[in-house]
C-alpha cells in the first residue's frame, strides 16, 4: 500500500496511487499550515476553566483535549485566526503579533 507520507513532488508516476486515491485517514495532519500565521494565540493555562468552548470554534481542529483538559494549541495547524481568543469567556487566550508561539 502506498502511504501519503511517501508521496511528494519528486515521486515518479509508477509510485503514485492510481487516480489520486489515498488509503489512510487524516493525512492532512502531515501538512503544516502553521506557517500561515501572522498572529499567534497564547494559551494562559492558569486562566483556563476547561469549558471547551474554544474547541468547536477552531476551524483547524488545532485545540486538542485530553482527559477532560484543554491542551495547548497544535501550532503546526493553527492559522492564527483569533476566533478562540474572541470567544473565550475567561481571557485564557491572548493573541500575540507574529507567527511564532510565545
Amino acid at each position: 500500500m502506498i502511504h501519503a507520507k511517501d508521496i511528494n513532488e519528486k515521486t515518479p508516476w509508477q509510485e503514485l496511487t492510481p487516480g489520486g486515491e489515498i488509503y489512510e485517514a487524516g493525512t492532512a495532519r502531515l501538512y503544516n499550515t502553521g506557517t500561515w500565521r501572522t498572529d499567534t494565540p497564547f494559551f494562559k493555562q492558569e486562566n483556563c476553566k476547561h469549558c471547551m468552548l474554544c474547541v468547536p470554534y477552531c476551524p483547524d481542529s488545532a485545540i486538542p483535549v485530553q482527559d477532560g483538559k484543554r491542551q495547548d494549541f497544535v501550532f503546526m495547524h493553527c492559522k492564527g485566526c483569533g476566533i478562540c481568543a474572541e470567544i473565550c469567556p475567561f481571557e485564557a487566550i491572548e493573541m500575540t503579533p507574529g507567527g511564532a508561539p510565545k
Binding site: M1, T11, P12, G19, G20, E21, Y23, E24, T27
Partner: peptide, 29 residues
C-alpha cells in the same frame, strides 16, 4: 483492493490534484 465502504481502512477519492501530480496521474491512465 480499496473502496469507500471498506472497513479496514478509509478511501479518499477525487482529490484536488495540483500540477505536481496531475500529469503523473494522466500518464497512469
Amino acid at each position: 483492493e480499496h473502496y469507500l465502504l471498506k472497513k479496514d481502512n478509509p478511501l479518499a477519492i477525487g482529490p484536488y490534484d495540483i500540477s505536481a501530480y496531475y500529469m503523473e496521474h494522466k500518464v497512469q491512465g
